[in-house]
Amino acid sequence: MNFFEKLKNRGKSSFPIAVGASATGKMVKMEQLSDPVFSSGAIGPCCGIDPQEGKIYAPIDGEVVTLMDSLHALGIKGAQGVEILIHVGIDTVNLNGKGFRAHVKAKDKIKKGQLLLEIDQAVIKEAGYLDTVITVVTNGSEFSSVEVMDQSDVQVGMDIMQIH
């Protein structure tokens, strides 16, 4: 960035960064998630959504940096270096991709609200797993705060977190 651009952008902030809901459904607080890796915040501040339908959308603009072979999880890098993990279900890695369909691949540029994955909720539930869609800010400690909104019912794109 050249000197004049720096002057023009001085004082402007890209924060807070709004993280949108990746699914429509009931929000689940971090502490109420049934997997202790998530409920303890071990990999970062997070929340879940019990989805009404089997469609998972991008919570931010960015780039898909990782898409697991089992399609149950993907990583996104967004503005200001924010790293988001979308993890669909608890123990769904054991399905080895059965019931999952990806609409993106690693290195794809994505826009908030873009369809990322489709899941067959019946397949997941028949296997005895939960289909909770968990959104994690995996590098939350690099920011001054990550505020999880107190929501009950959410729609795709509705703000569920603010990163400061």
Score class of each variant (00 low, 15 high):
2 N>F: 10
2 N>S: 09
5 E>Q: 12
9 N>M: 07
11 G>Y: 05
12 K>N: 15
13 S>I: 05
13 S>K: 05
15 F>D: 10
16 P>W: 00
16 P>I: 08
17 I>V: 13
17 I>P: 02
18 A>I: 12
20 G>P: 02
21 A>Y: 07
22 S>F: 08
23 A>R: 05
23 A>I: 06
23 A>Y: 02
23 A>S: 10
24 T>Q: 08
25 G>W: 01
28 V>R: 05
34 S>Y: 09
35 D>F: 08
35 D>W: 05
36 P>I: 10
36 P>V: 11
37 V>K: 03
39 S>R: 01
40 S>K: 00
41 G>R: 00
41 G>N: 09
41 G>D: 09
42 A>V: 02
43 I>F: 04
43 I>C: 12
44 G>T: 08
44 G>A: 13
45 P>R: 13
45 P>W: 02
46 C>K: 00
50 D>H: 08
53 E>R: 09
54 G>C: 07
55 K>D: 15
56 I>D: 04
57 Y>E: 06
57 Y>M: 10
58 A>D: 03
59 P>C: 14
60 I>K: 00
61 D>Y: 11
62 G>K: 01
62 G>Y: 00
65 V>Q: 10
65 V>F: 05
66 T>F: 13
69 D>N: 04
71 L>N: 07
71 L>V: 04
72 H>K: 07
74 L>A: 07
76 I>E: 08
81 G>M: 03
84 I>T: 01
86 I>N: 02
87 H>E: 05
88 V>R: 02
93 V>H: 02
93 V>S: 02
94 N>E: 07
94 N>Q: 12
96 N>S: 13
97 G>D: 06
98 K>Y: 06
99 G>H: 01
101 R>P: 08
103 H>F: 15
106 A>C: 04
107 K>G: 07
108 D>C: 06
110 I>T: 03
110 I>C: 09
112 K>I: 13
112 K>V: 12
114 Q>F: 13
114 Q>C: 12
114 Q>Y: 09
115 L>T: 12
116 L>T: 09
119 I>C: 03
119 I>W: 03
119 I>K: 01
120 D>Q: 02
121 Q>L: 14
123 V>P: 01
126 E>K: 14
126 E>C: 09
127 A>I: 09
127 A>L: 12
129 Y>F: 15
131 D>P: 04
132 T>P: 01
133 V>F: 13
135 T>G: 10
140 G>E: 04
140 G>A: 10
140 G>I: 04
142 E>V: 11
142 E>G: 13
143 F>L: 07
143 F>K: 06
143 F>S: 12
145 S>D: 06
147 E>N: 10
149 M>S: 13
152 S>M: 06
152 S>G: 11
153 D>F: 09
154 V>T: 01
155 Q>S: 15
156 V>W: 06
157 G>C: 04
159 D>E: 15
159 D>W: 10
159 D>N: 15
160 I>R: 05
161 M>W: 00
163 I>A: 13
163 I>M: 05
164 H>Q: 09
